[in-house]
């Protein structure tokens, strides 16, 4: 499978979950294993562009797929992406456990919806639990990221 643009080939047991494969076999520990039964959303990654819970998919099912994780979000020079920067600026995290999942969920949504409103982001984020922030700062970060992405796109045009 390809993970963040890099190709990996491994033999794994069928019962190896995608989240465990990323963390244990590929040492990509940015994806967090939270509840491990599909409730908390911390393990959210993108597979072929779609957000999903990597604790509810077997690694073998991602054979040949293109996987994106939190490790792939930053810019090539190592600087934070717009979305990451906005989480930083708005204090969209405290302990940081849910953050990888939050970022991946919002990454998918903002790719498809350049002009989200607050209610829409709140609904999209229902699949990701955060016990620190009360979500307010996360929603603000998402809205600001959408604004900044639009501004950047306009500047480039």
């Amino acid at each position: 499978m390809s993970v963040n643009g890099r190709t990996y080939e491994r033999d794994v047991e069928p019962r190896m979950l995608l989240v465990d494969f990323l963390r244990q076999d590929l040492d990509l520990t940015g994806t967090h294993a939270g509840c491990e039964h599909g409730v908390c959303g911390a393990c959210t990654v993108l597979v072929n562009g779609r957000s999903l819970r990597s604790c509810l998919m077997f690694a073998v099912q991602a054979n040949g797929a293109s996987v994106e994780t939190i490790e792939g979000l930053a810019n090539a020079d190592g600087s934070l992406s717009i979305l990451q920067e906005c989480f930083h600026d708005h204090h969209g995290l405290q302990c940081g456990f849910c953050t990888p999942g939050m970022l991946m969920t919002l990454t998918e949504h903002l790719r498809e919806n350049a002009t989200p409103d607050e209610q829409e982001l709140r609904v999209v984020l229902t699949g990701n639990l955060c016990r620190c922030t009360g979500y307010q700062a996360i929603v603000e970060a998402g809205l600001d990221a959408a604004r900044r992405m639009r501004a950047k796109k306009e500047a480039a045009e």
Binding site: G38, G41, R50, S51, L52, L56, T105, V124
Partner: peptide
């Protein structure tokens, strides 16, 4: 039914 991530799958 669930959330975006579960409906995707």
């Amino acid at each position: 039914v669930g959330h975006r991530q579960t409906r995707n799958r």
